[in-house]
C-alpha cells in the first residue's frame, strides 16, 4: 500500500462532505455532479444559474490552487482517444440513466441511506473493479 494517502484522503473527503451539507443547507440541492451537469445540458431545464455556478466553482478550485503555487497533478489518461471517447459516452449516458454518479449516489445517496443509491453504488463499484481487473490482469496481464 505504498500509494495510500489516508490523511489527505480524509481531509479531502471532509471538504466534499462539507460541500454537500452546505449545498443542501443553502439551496436544498443534492451535490450530484452528473445531475447538475445533465440538467445544464437539458434545453428544458429552467434552473440553470446554480448549476452553472457549481461547475464554475469546481473548475476554479484547481485554477486558484495553481495560482497559489500548488502543483496541480496532470491527469494520466489512456493513449487511445477511442477508449477515452467510449468511456466518456458510457459515463455520460450511464449516470443519467441511473440518475447519479459517485457523488449523487455514492456520497449524498448513501448519506441519505437511500436503498436506490446504495444499490447503484455497489453495482458501479463492482462493475468498475471487474473492468480494471480484466484490463490489467487478463487483457493487459
Amino acid at each position: 500500500m505504498a500509494n495510500f494517502t489516508p490523511v489527505s484522503a480524509a481531509i479531502g473527503g471532509a471538504l466534499i462532505g462539507l460541500s454537500a451539507v452546505l449545498l443542501m443547507l443553502f439551496d436544498g440541492r443534492i451535490a450530484g455532479i452528473s445531475g447538475i451537469l445533465g440538467g445544464l445540458l437539458n434545453p428544458q431545464t429552467k434552473d440553470r444559474a446554480w448549476r452553472a455556478a457549481f461547475v464554475v466553482g469546481l473548475i476554479a478550485a484547481p485554477v486558484a490552487a495553481a495560482l497559489a503555487g500548488y502543483a496541480v497533478p496532470v491527469p494520466q489518461m489512456p493513449k487511445s482517444f477511442i477508449t477515452i471517447a467510449v468511456a466518456g459516452l458510457l459515463v455520460g449516458f450511464g449516470t443519467r440513466l441511473g440518475s447519479g454518479c459517485t457523488s449523487g449516489h455514492g456520497i449524498c445517496g448513501i448519506a441519505r441511506r437511500s436503498p436506490r443509491s446504495i444499490t447503484a453504488t455497489a453495482i458501479f463499484m463492482v462493475t468498475a473493479i471487474i473492468v480494471v481487473a480484466l484490463m490489467r490482469h487478463v487483457v493487459g496481464g
Binding site: 477508449t83 468511456a87 459516452l89 459515463v91 440513466l97 447503484a120 458501479f124 462493475t127 468498475a128 473492468v131
Partner: peptide
C-alpha cells in the same frame, strides 16, 4: 445505468 457508468469509470 450503474453498470454502464461502472464500465466507463473502470476504463479511464
Amino acid at each position: 445505468g450503474a453498470v454502464l457508468f461502472g464500465i466507463g469509470w473502470g476504463l479511464v
